[in-house]
Simulated assay, not measured.
Amino acid sequence: MTLLSACALPRSGPSKNEIYSGAVEKGGNAHVIYVNDHVTRTANFAPSYGFSSSFQRAGQVGADEIRPGDVLGLSIWENVDDGLLTSLGNSSTNLQEIQVDSGGYIFVPYAGRIMAAGNTPEQLRNIITDRLSAQTPDPQVTVARVAGDGATVSVMGKVNGQGVFPIERPTRSLSAMLARAGGVSVEPEVAVVTVKRGNEMGKVWLTDLYAGQNDIALRPGDIILVEEDQRSFTALGALGGQTRVPLGNEMINAVEAIAMVGGLNSNLADPTGVFVLRDEPEAVASRVLGKQVYGTQRMAYVLDLTRPNGLFLARDFLIRDGDSVYVTEAPYVRWQKVLQAITGSAASADSLATIGN
């Protein structure tokens, strides 16, 4: 009875043999794979962030180009005492806050409906001048953009100043617009910047962006989202700590992952039973197994740190987002628990007998 109850003794998780019993070869649904040089070469890949070629090819927005939604200010001088738009005694008139409609047009008295979108202020000035020249001698026109609501981007998330910002000459690139929004409010090393443009989306590490990589030109309507990276792995079993560990923006190997939670528990851990559990994509699993498999595969990678090159293999094996690093207890620990349970039960019985007497 005591030996049977010992099987239910407290422990940090399954034993090596219990994990092996779930292998595909034994009717289970997980591939149990010892890590070697072939495995480290085929299983190691780090999903990288970056923008597609369509993002990178997009040219900078012309800061002077008029767009639907812009608000313009016009000033018109006429070379007569009593002109079309000027009152008696005045030589000029100001038409302020003329908004470019959704079709890109504006209306100017005596010049009619004019396509403003797509033109620079200088080009629009020439168009209006030509229209008015037929009705008043030698008109002089100035065009200025009062607001740039038509060429804007939205910046949100972990920034110090969320909002809708116009694309202006100093803020035509992603890094410049983030600076315009006050910079990020999280540590730069864990900040991820996502840009949504129509049906496309791309993301980049902030540190890569400021290093000069992927600093794309912005387009009207872009949505910029800054988030703190959520990638992590879970540490379980006979380790110095059992917790969820953020990965940050670095590539972490198995040795570093173990060290990040305090290393192996020297009183409990079996260094031959370090497991990395993950759901492996079809393409990677096929390369690791050396045969074609279909669909995502459950993989249990085994790292035996006692082998001559065990630590080197662990150092070369990369940890990915969603991995579980599990370390089994040494067989000695299990026997020790059984013995403690047996001797503890005997001591309790003796105590009860003493009390009875």
Rank of each mutant, 00 (worst) to 15 (best):
N90G: 04
R41K: 09
Y301N: 02
L352K: 11
P246Y: 11
T93E: 15
D82M: 13
G150T: 06
Q230A: 14
T328Y: 00
Y105R: 00
L72E: 02
S154T: 05
A151W: 04
K196F: 03
N79I: 07
T171F: 02
S175H: 00
V24E: 14
S345M: 12
G202S: 12
A259D: 10
G221M: 00
V71K: 02
L209W: 05
E65I: 10
V302K: 06
T171D: 06
L264K: 13
G295C: 05
W205E: 06
S286P: 06
L339W: 07
G13R: 10
G198S: 03
G248A: 07
E250A: 10
L174N: 03
P246W: 11
H38D: 04
Q60V: 09
T171C: 07
T2V: 10
G240C: 03
M251V: 12
G356T: 05
G89V: 02
A30L: 13
S48G: 12
G148L: 01
G262E: 03
G50H: 01
K196T: 07
Q56R: 14
M1T: 04
N126P: 13
E189S: 15
N126R: 14
P10M: 03
I33V: 03
G150Y: 05
L132W: 04
P170F: 03
M251T: 15
G322R: 00
M1D: 02
S351R: 11
G356N: 07
Y110F: 15
T152Q: 10
G150D: 03
V24H: 14
G22P: 06
F312S: 15
G263P: 08
L305F: 08
L268E: 08
G103F: 00
Q340I: 09
T42Y: 01
L239F: 08
G356Q: 08
V164P: 07
Q336T: 15
P281T: 12
R113C: 14
V143T: 01
G27W: 15
F45L: 02
N309H: 04
L311N: 12
Q242D: 03
K203W: 11
D350W: 12
A283M: 04
M299V: 01
L4P: 05
M156F: 02
R244E: 13
T136Y: 13
T243M: 09
E168Q: 04
N94M: 11
I33A: 08
P137S: 05
A111M: 12
G248E: 04
Y326I: 00
F233C: 03
N94R: 15
T2M: 14
G148N: 02
W77C: 05
D316Q: 12
G13D: 11
R307M: 11
G50A: 03
S154E: 08
D208L: 08
R320L: 11
G310A: 13
G356F: 10
N249T: 05
F107D: 07
A283R: 00
P271K: 12
S21Y: 15
V193R: 09
R125M: 14
A330I: 08
L305G: 10
G212R: 13
A23D: 14
